[in-house]
Simulated assay, not measured.
Amino acid sequence: MAHPAVLARLVEEYETVSRLRDGDRREPLRQRLEDVVYTLCVSTGTRDVDAALASARERMAAAWLVDVDGTAAAAAAAAAL
Rank of each mutant, 00 (worst) to 15 (best):
A61S: 05
V36N: 00
L20R: 14
T16S: 13
A73H: 11
E34A: 14
T16N: 14
V42Q: 04
V66F: 08
Y14H: 15
L20Y: 10
A54G: 05
S43K: 02
A61Y: 00
A72D: 14
A63N: 08
G23R: 14
V49C: 03
P4W: 10
A62I: 05
C41Q: 07
M60E: 09
D69R: 04
R19E: 15
R30V: 15
L20S: 12
D35C: 04
P4D: 11
A5M: 11
A76L: 12
W64I: 08
R26K: 06
A54I: 08
V68G: 04
L40Y: 01
L40W: 00
A51S: 15
Q31C: 01
W64M: 10
R30N: 15
D50W: 10
E15W: 04
S43A: 15
H3K: 15
L40A: 01
P4A: 09
A56T: 05
A56S: 10
D69K: 02
E15M: 08
A2Q: 07
V66M: 13
A79R: 15
T44N: 03
A76C: 01
G23F: 14
V6N: 05
D35Y: 06
E15L: 11
R32C: 07
P28Y: 07
S43V: 02
E34T: 05
A61W: 01
T44I: 03
A62N: 02
A79F: 07
S55H: 04
R9T: 13
D35T: 08
A74G: 15
V17S: 01
S18H: 06
A80Y: 03
R21Q: 14
H3R: 14
L53V: 10
D24E: 13
R32M: 05
P28K: 04
A79T: 14
L20C: 05
D69C: 08
V17F: 01
S43G: 14
A75E: 11
L20A: 13
L20K: 14
M60Y: 03
D50M: 12
D48S: 06
V36Q: 00
T44Y: 03
L10S: 01
D67A: 09
A75V: 07
Y14S: 03
A76V: 10
L40R: 00
R47Y: 13
A77G: 01
T46P: 01
S18E: 13
R19D: 15
R30C: 13
P28Q: 05
E58D: 11
L65E: 12
E27K: 15
T44R: 03
D35N: 13
L33V: 02
L7V: 06
E15G: 00
L53P: 00
E13R: 13
A54W: 12
A52E: 02
V6D: 08
T39W: 00
D50I: 09
A76P: 00
